[in-house]
Design a protein around this nucleic acid. Structure first.
Lengths: 214, 214
DNA sequence: TAGATTGTTAATCGATTAACAATC
DNA sequence: TAGATTGTTAATCGATTAACAATC
């Protein structure tokens, strides 16, 4: 059976749908039409229906979509019905911020350990999660089920570390280092490049300035 | 004169070009062809040439591109030749992580103040930058030139705060709150939705699992 | 039933890739 | 000059939007 590949553009929009549906759910909204949702989200109703129908018919003619049901189904598509064990590598400010972000657990992402190279940080705890020495990383991954490693280490350290993580059996890397990790393609990498995000903001600001100067 | 609008896809790629060129520059690489760069970046040479030619002819036939020149020119396109004053609103973990991220200054982004509602944080300093009471926000913005506000506050507070910031004359918002800010269109918003990034990773992981189960 | 809204096909639009003449 | 590589046009591909029959 030939399953049509879902386009990347669609996947990128799914978390946003999920967020809006979660917000509606909190407001006890029971049903919503693609038109109503399109008004809220500033996208076309057609796009919403096309996107959802990549995964199945979640709506009902003449009625629209049941908010709770659609929220749950998109959650399943995103894999949020599963639990993931995360380790954070790099206990700097960003690593600590991630470790403190309790909301992740609500979505099934559990931070199990933090690793750092700095002996002054090793032994400390964040939210009850111990900072371990990075020397113990290999053994930890081998002995525990770890699904995701969040990489908040300096750029220079990231590629080698990522290669090691892949070798030791990590499945996914949430990469915050400002570099691309070129790994075997069965290792999933999701990048968060803050500097690039800020540059986009900078671009848009200077575009606006140019427009105003005219 | 009719200036062709640059597509969003192109803008999104510019910071990545800038990063690769910066890396080449550090390695003292003088020239690079679109073909060589395409091999490194895993994109087509054709796309690189198309992207760059939206902004002008930066290369030379038979030679390629001068790395330093191209780096500088893309920097100008991105507005990195200008200086920006940033304030951070929300001195939680993420706000503190941003305040500590020295590298931003290298690119012309200067963190001038941090604001928080929590009286226990007010008065503390991060890298010599004082945490002020959020009550002083309006006056600060009015009295100082502030270009960008990084918003690292809880979701519930973000929309009202963003509306206030817009009213008080902020030009750009770097939004880390997991919500969309619907503001007048002359206010530039750049979102960093960490939870959505993690969901994409989750999706890709569960896709891989499904493929393996077959 | 009549009205509303989906699911889905077809049309349009835009982005990417290929190809090659221009030119360094 | 000959070889290399750009800048740019044309062809292809994919994503978005429009339209409407199906159906609740």
């Amino acid at each position: 059976m030939h399953k049509k590949q879902i386009s990347k553009a669609v996947i990128n929009r799914l978390p946003r749908y999920y967020r809006y549906l979660g917000d509606l759910l909190e407001k006890d909204v029971v049903r919503i039409s693609s038109k109503e949702l399109s008004d809220k989200m500033k996208v076309t109703a057609s796009q919403i229906r096309q996107d959802l129908n990549n995964f199945g018919g979640f709506g009902q003619q003449g009625y629209g979509y049941n908010v709770e049901y659609l929220h749950t189904e998109i959650g399943k598509i995103l894999g949020l019905d599963k639990k993931y064990n995360i380790i954070i590598i790099g206990a700097g400010n960003l690593g600590q911020a991630l470790a403190n972000y309790v909301d992740f657990e609500r979505r099934g992402f559990y931070v199990k350990a933090i690793f750092d190279i700095n002996p002054r940080l090793v032994g400390l705890s964040i939210r009850g999660i111990e900072i371990k020495n990075i020397d113990e990383l290999k053994e930890y991954i081998t002995m525990n089920q770890v699904d995701i490693a969040a990489l908040t280490v300096p750029k220079a350290k990231a590629p080698q570390l990522a290669a090691d993580l892949a070798k030791w059996g990590i499945k996914g890397i949430w990469n915050f280092a400002p570099t691309d990790l070129h790994l075997a393609e069965d290792i999933i990498v999701e990048n968060v490049h803050l500097a690039e995000s800020l540059m986009k903001l900078s671009y848009k600001l200077s575009e606006k300035n140019k427009a105003n100067d005219k």
